[in-house]
Amino acid sequence: MSRAAATAALGKDLVGLEGLTADQIRVILDTAEPFKEISERRIKKVPVLRGKTIVNLFFEASTRTRISFEFAEKRLAADTVNIGAVGSSVSKGETLVDTARNLEAMRIDMVVMRHWSPGAARFLASRIPSNVINAGDGAHEHPTQGLLDILTLRDHFGRLEGLKVCIVGDVLHSRVARSNIFGLVTLGAEVAVCGPHTLLPAGIEELGVRVFGRVEEAIEWAEALNVLRLQLERMEGGFVPSLREYNRVFGVTRERLEWAPRELLVLHPGPMNRGVEIDSDVADGPHSVILRQVTNGVAVRMAVLYLLTGGAPDRAESAKSGGEGRS
């Protein structure tokens, strides 16, 4: 496949799962499969992105996502530069568009960006010719997180069509929730959200999801729960009166899971607040695939990097040994 054809399969950028077709999402998931193995090797490096320059531009603090991207980039042999908001020109008041233009002037190939403002990734993508991957833009989307969650679900259940997945918690402020909703609905899963109504955004049903007001109902219905982090600052916003009550009413606890009519799979995008949205014996227990999500995150990000830089979906396996997947 030519570069143009492969780019057309995904587009120049990955700013969100909304708007991608089921086939496009499946191509990413399928491409992630052969990349899983690289991280299991003794020498975890293949020359797929040799000579490519990638900037990780993180305007917000991030540990897991930033490191996961960096591992994915380095294991594909890309040259990477990390820029954080603190200690860079961003903290001196430079605008996003100026930062982008300056990076572009240094002839980079790709930007992975985390930004607090919804739409920031699309803004950047429309203004620079480099590929842009959204690593989280405010409460909008976090597409690679959505993809790694979906890959983890597919690994476990072997199917996504008709799978009942409930996203539990602070949907209002969550980019993870939106990416999961857009991706899963497109792939034919049944999706629900559950949380206090103060943390469920207006018109959420119109995105094609069912709404549960009580976590017990969600547990009775679902095959998998994706438990969102409750940002502790939401307390100050008055969205929930106390963490204690949140745990009592909405927490995913072992007792609640024992009432479930079937074995539930529990996901969490991290970082967890143990004892708030999720109890330790659930997070560390047999239902949990939280660490598998983290492992899958590296493979999914490798797949996205590979596809956006022109890699052919059907040549990922051979690309790992010498880079002939790209033409």
């Binding site: 409460a139 939106r178 207006a202 018109g203 959420i204």
Partner: peptide
């Protein structure tokens, strides 16, 4: 405006 579009975009709405 607070509504389904603000929800999709992750932007804060004015009801």
């Amino acid at each position: 405006h607070e509504g389904v579009v603000s929800t999709r975009l992750g932007l804060r709405g004015k009801p």
